[in-house]
Computed example of a mutant assay.
Amino acid sequence: MSHITWEAPFCGEGNNCFRIGTDTAGNAYIAVNGAEDQHLTDTREALRALIHDIKAGKADHLL
């Protein structure tokens, strides 16, 4: 497995915190803060779109 570099946690209201990570192969990862070993993997573009929708309030139920 490639080494994942995690960004600082993004936290919404309450305890909804997640982190975005990337590796040297260009993969992107998302995980709940504190549970980075249980992450989802997708392309950077797909995760960027997900984060954009969460911030816009379209997908806050996913947190």
Rank of each mutant, 00 (worst) to 15 (best):
D42C: 10
R19N: 09
D37W: 08
D23A: 06
I20G: 00
W6K: 01
A59H: 13
C11F: 01
N27M: 02
C11Q: 02
E13W: 06
H52L: 06
L63K: 05
H52S: 03
A31F: 09
G21S: 00
E36N: 07
A59I: 01
G12P: 03
I30Q: 04
G57K: 05
N33D: 14
R19I: 08
E45C: 00
H61V: 02
H61K: 13
H3P: 09
A28E: 00
A56S: 06
D42W: 04
F18V: 11
Q38M: 07
L62W: 10
N33A: 11
A46W: 01
L40A: 14
D60Y: 06
T22F: 14
A8W: 05
L40R: 08
I51T: 07
G21C: 02
A8S: 14
T24R: 09
H52N: 14
E45N: 07
R48Q: 12
I54E: 00
D53E: 15
H3E: 12
V32R: 07
G34F: 06
G12R: 06
I51N: 07
E7V: 12
G34D: 08
N33Y: 08
D42K: 03
L40S: 09
T22W: 09
K55R: 15
E7G: 13
I30A: 13
A31N: 04
T41K: 04
I20A: 00
A28C: 12
G34Y: 09
F10L: 12
L50T: 07
T5L: 10
T5Q: 10
V32Q: 00
D42S: 13
C17Q: 02
